[in-house]
Design a protein around this nucleic acid. Structure first.
Lengths: 157, 157
DNA sequence: CGACAGATGTTTACACGTCAACAACATGGG
DNA sequence: CCCATGTTGTTGACGTGTAAACATCTGTCG
């Protein structure tokens, strides 16, 4: 390989800054969440994806694709959440191999109670620190990178 | 808690976009790195931090603080890297409890060979997708968040 | 129908991170 | 000097993510 194009100062600042931000921001938000609600960040992601699914239920593979998780990871995680009564597994009627994950009453209540504090935490440590312009640019950067890495994936509510 | 200030569309786009970008970008860069050099992303971080330390050596606690890692995590990771001959442990002369981590010849060669491909990967999946303005804003966002979460920590080469 | 490629979800073995406990040592005041 | 307190780095127990193998089932095609 020929002499590579190294990162200049601004590029280095952006890349290393991103990496360090990711380390601290995720740790902080995750810690706030766990302290206030007993949910881990992955727990919240699962509950959130289920809440925004029709009937509060979804096939495991669909859920995994939507979350960009491996089926293996999701299967294991669902197992643990099932133990805690946050979700339930049901067989699929149209496909005997299938597994349908559903949100339980307790799971629904838990995420509803957790959401306000979680949003407040995200605001405190990220959103409210930034100007509207910065927020807009951050969203655009993410869309650009996602369009490159996962063409076809859209950001949706 | 009163009715919280939920995220508006732009804020939601920025937050969820950040989370999904983080998921895919880190996975991709990490995968490129491992395929081309056999190093994991944490391996690279350790070697990188050691390379930019004087004498290619550093006390474990110092290294951990610089990397924002726990001592436990670093100690375990160093153990594994030691097995592979990438780093070595030495006792500290001025503090008998101390452990000094040093970069081996093999470790130095490995990161020197890995660096060009790694930079290319970071460029391909992030930096070269963005305009100079976006790169500048990303750096500023990271600095802002870090100043909030870890006052006193500076971004340094 | 019967066979076979492919999909679904789970599981096994392993790598890794965290938390708390720990032994060993340093440091400062009585 | 000696003890109390704190620091350093390692470890055991545990929870969690990954990769590959696996049993099970679907759908298609001869």
């Amino acid at each position: 390989m020929a002499e590579p194009r190294w990162l200049d100062d601004d590029e280095f600042r952006a890349w290393i800054g991103y990496r360090r931000m990711r380390l601290l921001l995720d740790a902080q938000v995750s810690q706030d969440l766990t302290r206030e609600s007993g949910l881990s960040a992955p727990d919240y992601d699962v509950l959130s994806a289920l809440t925004s699914s029709e009937g509060h239920r979804r096939r495991l593979t669909e859920l995994a694709e939507r979350m960009l998780w491996s089926k293996s990871r999701l299967s294991r995680h669902i197992g643990r959440m099932e133990q805690r009564g946050l979700v339930a597994r049901e067989g699929c009627e149209t496909d005997a191999r299938g597994s349908v994950i559903t949100l339980t009453e307790h799971g629904l209540r838990t995420i509803q109670e957790a959401a306000p504090g979680h949003v407040a935490s995200v605001r405190r440590h990220l959103i409210d620190l930034l100007s509207p312009e910065q927020i807009e640019v951050l969203g655009t950067i993410a869309e650009t990178v996602l369009a490159h890495l996962a063409p076809g994936e859209e950001l949706r509510r």
